[in-house]
């Protein structure tokens, strides 16, 4: 898995990871003001979310490789 987790306790809701992500992988949950990983399969491991001031984000090597099915 590429982006694996955002620690909900450490996340201060600043939104830097949301704006930095070029792939729209992370969205802000506006109710609880915490960043959430919504589309991890689109993470390209650029690392720009690691500018998190609270160091709440964890990445690990490897990609999600979806299985190619017959159709959509």
């Amino acid at each position: 898995m590429p982006i694996e987790s955002i620690d909900p306790v450490m996340c201060n809701g600043c939104g830097i990871c949301v704006r930095n992500c070029p792939m729209d992988v992370i969205r802000m949950d506006r109710t609880i003001r915490k960043a959430q990983i919504l589309y991890p399969e689109d993470c390209m491991l650029c690392g720009q979310c690691l500018e998190c001031p609270e160091k709440a984000i964890y990445l690990r090597p490897g990609f999600l490789q979806p299985t190619l099915l017959g159709w959509g």
Binding site: M44, L45, C46, G47, Q48, L50, E51, P61, G62, F63
Partner: peptide, 13 residues
């Protein structure tokens, strides 16, 4: 083995 690891941005930033 690990394409894109470590993240390229870390190197430049």
């Amino acid at each position: 083995d690990h394409p894109a690891w470590p993240p390229m941005y870390l190197f430049f930033s």
